[in-house]
Write a protein that binds this DNA or RNA. Structure first.
Length: 380
DNA sequence: AAGCCGTGGTC
DNA sequence: TGACCAAGGCT
């Protein structure tokens, strides 16, 4: 067997200094170096840190976890609100998981909030780690998040491999296979290119390049500092990279949901199990419609099975389609009247009767927030 | 290792 | 407007 890798892609290690130099020169002018965009990346007096300076690692850690699969623009207001409510690791560790989830509400991937809380309780115990392995040992922190925290916070020479970096590298090499299948190779590329003298700036510059120039749809190659050695640019159509696997169609299901009111005008909600979809969030009870079943029958059956109650289904409140990352659901929501049975958490953590005014104090998924809005409209 | 896990921006 | 994608991690 010959040396496949040598034949398949260029070795850019010799070019690394030149690539870093051109990238950083671009970044000094066009990078997202704005305290209004990434406040955690700046010193207390509002400067971009010098190589020897450290940042507030708590701020970096919270930001990096929020930024997992989530755009900078979306994260910013959540980060600001979070730091106000949990300004220290002790404040976060001492908070209830309920408070933490309420603060996270709407950001998605809710296990991140639970793991952030668990990690805070470990970090509150002793000195904060400074090495990659210790950070990776904390819940919710993988190699990219750990590398980002340490390179941002301490200027540690650690590579990252997020969606931006994968796309830039895939194009730079015109790599013929989806990055997901070749993590080892892409990590090597990211490490080879990393500037050991300025890892903080280099990682930020690489992500800024991917987010603002080497974008998925319309890459602005005319402004790219790496155009001179980009294989995808040379091939004529950079958007052919990164290669992707054919997407699988999302399964579609109809969910019958009951907004159950009792004689006092209280509403029935349940808290989902911690694991799985929307773990730990509150919701209006319901479940999948079975083949041949009417939606009214579905709601009656689900509430009997999951809560042990008998209800009578009334008027339709709202119907809404909602796409998750791996399935599409249609929620058909009906107002219902409680008839008999004390609600039991047979398929959930807890069940509670609450007045509609209290709903704000529970963390709900986005789809349920729309149901609450419809409920308020129907009551008024 | 491939599937699960949310939501909103963007075109 | 539906489809793709985002500063990924976990199992």
């Amino acid at each position: 067997m010959g040396q496949r890798s040598g034949a398949e892609h260029r070795d850019l290690s010799a070019l690394a200094p030149e690539l870093s130099q051109s990238l950083l020169a671009w970044w000094e002018i066009h990078g997202r170096k704005d305290p209004a965009l990434k406040p955690w990346m700046f010193t207390k007096d509002g400067r971009w840190p010098e190589p020897h300076e450290h940042l507030n690692v708590l701020e970096c850690w919270i930001a990096e976890v929020m930024l997992q699969q989530t755009q900078l623009k979306v994260v910013l207001p959540y980060w600001q609100g979070w730091m106000k409510v949990f300004p220290t690791v002790d404040a976060l560790a001492a908070a209830s998981l309920e408070q933490v989830r309420l603060q996270w509400q709407g950001l998605g991937y809710y296990s991140r909030a639970r793991r952030l809380h668990a990690a805070a309780q470990r970090l509150a115990q002793g000195p904060w780690p400074r090495d990659l392995d210790s950070w990776m040992g904390l819940p919710g922190i993988g190699r990219t998040t750990a590398g980002s925290i340490l390179s941002s916070g301490f200027n540690a020479p650690l590579a990252i491999l997020d969606g931006n970096v994968k796309r830039v590298l895939a194009r730079l090499h015109a790599h013929p296979r989806p990055p997901a299948r070749e993590q080892v190779l892409f990590w090597q590329w990211s490490e080879v290119l990393l500037d050991p003298a300025r890892p903080r700036d280099f990682n930020q510059a690489l992500m800024d390049l991917g987010a603002t120039v080497c974008t998925p749809r319309n890459p602005d190659c005319g402004r790219c500092p790496w155009q001179f050695c980009c294989a995808a640019y040379a091939a004529g159509d950079p958007t052919r990279w990164p290669m992707t696997d054919a997407p699988k169609p999302l399964p579609f299901q109809v969910i019958g949901v009951g907004v159950v009111l009792n004689a006092e005008g209280h509403v029935l909600i349940d808290q989902r199990l911690d694991e799985g979809l929307l773990g730990g969030l509150w919701e209006f009870p319901g479940g999948k419609q079975e083949p041949g079943e009417s939606i009214e029958a579905c709601i009656e059956r689900e509430l009997k099975e999951e809560l042990g109650i008998v209800i009578s289904v009334g008027e339709e409140l709202i119907t809404l389609d909602h796409a998750y990352s791996h399935k599409k659901l249609r929620f058909v929501v009906y107002l219902c009247a409680w008839v008999s049975g004390d609600p039991q958490p047979l398929a959930s953590q807890q069940v509670r009767w609450v007045s509609p005014d209290q709903l704000d104090t529970f963390a709900f998924p986005a789809a349920n927030a729309k149901m609450i809005e419809a409920l308020r409209r129907s009551i008024n």
